[in-house]
Amino acid sequence: MAKAKKSKFGQDNLVGVLMSLPGLILLTLFVIVPFITAIYLSFFNVDFNMVQGPQFWGLEQYRRILVDPITSPIFYKALMNNMTFALIVVPAQTGLAVLLAVMLNAKLKGIAFFRTFFFMPVVFPMSLVAIIWALMFSRDSMGMLNGLLNLFSFGYIQPIDWLGDPNIALLSIALLSIWAGVGFQMVIVLAGLQEIPAELYEAASLDRANFWQRFWNVTVPGLRNTLIFVIIITTIFSLRLFDQVFILTKGGPIDATQTVMYQAVTSAFIEGNVGRASAITVIFVLIIIAITLLQRLVLRQNREVK
C-alpha cells in the first residue's frame, strides 16, 4: 500500500513541494504564526513594552471584553456599530451596485464612458477618499455637502454636522464607504449580468413581462451566486472598518463610530494593552468565520428550497 501511494506522487512530489515552498513559508511566517501569536497572547497580560513581562491570565481578557460590566459595554458598542454599518452598507451598496449594473448593461452608445466614472473611486486609496470626504462633510454652511443640500432643498435643509452628530456620524462614514466601494461591486454584478443568457430576457419580453417582472424573475435568480459573493465580501468589509474611522472620527463622537478593529488598535497603541488587542483580534476572526458560515448556510438552504 505504502509503495503504491509513493508511486502515486511520482516525479511531481519534489517539484510540487519546492514550488509551493516559498508561498507556504511566507504564509506561515506572516499569517499563521501571527495568528497563533494572537491566540497565545490573548491569554496573557502583556503590556506594549513588556516592562513587567507577560503574566498568564487564562480567559481574563475575554471575560473583560465580553462579560465584565465595567469594561465590556465599549466592545459591544463597537460590535453594534459594525453590525449597524453592515446593515446600512450591505443592502445599500449591493442594491446600488445592481441598479448601476442594470443601467450599464444596456446596448447604448457611450456606456463605457459612464462605467469609467462609476468605477473611478476604486483606484483611490481609502486614506485619500476619507480626506476628500472630510471636506465634503464640513459641518457648517461652508461645507460642500451642506451647500449642495441647501441648494437642492431651496434652503429648507439646515447644515448638518455630518461627523460630529452621534446620530449621523456612522451614516456619514457609510456614505463615503459606499461611494468608494460600489464601483467594485458594480463591475462584479455587471459581469454576472452578462452571463445571464439573452434568450431568457427575450422569452420574458415575448411573455409581455414588464421591467420589474423581468428583473425579479430573470435578473435576480441569474445573479444569485454573484450576489452571494458580493454580500459576503461587503459584510466582511464592514467588519474590517478602520481607515475611515481612524482618519475622520477616531471612534467619536460619544463612541458613535467605535469599531472592533479600532478598539483593537487603540487597545494596543494607546492603552498599551497587547493582551486585550490580541483577544479582540481572535474574537474578530471568530465573528468573521461565523458570519461567513452562517451566510453560506442560509443561502445554501434557500437554494435547496428553490
Binding site: 511531481d12 494572537a38 497572547l41 468573521i288
Partner: peptide, 28 residues
C-alpha cells in the same frame, strides 16, 4: 501536481482566503 501534503495545503489556503489582514495586523 500531486505531492504529499497537497490536500492539507489546499484546505489551508481556502481557510486563509477569508482571513482579512486586519485580523493579524496587531500580532504581526
Amino acid at each position: 501536481l500531486r505531492w504529499r501534503g497537497r490536500d492539507a495545503v489546499q484546505v489551508l489556503v481556502i481557510l486563509l482566503v477569508i482571513l482579512p489582514f486586519e485580523a493579524i495586523a496587531i500580532p504581526l
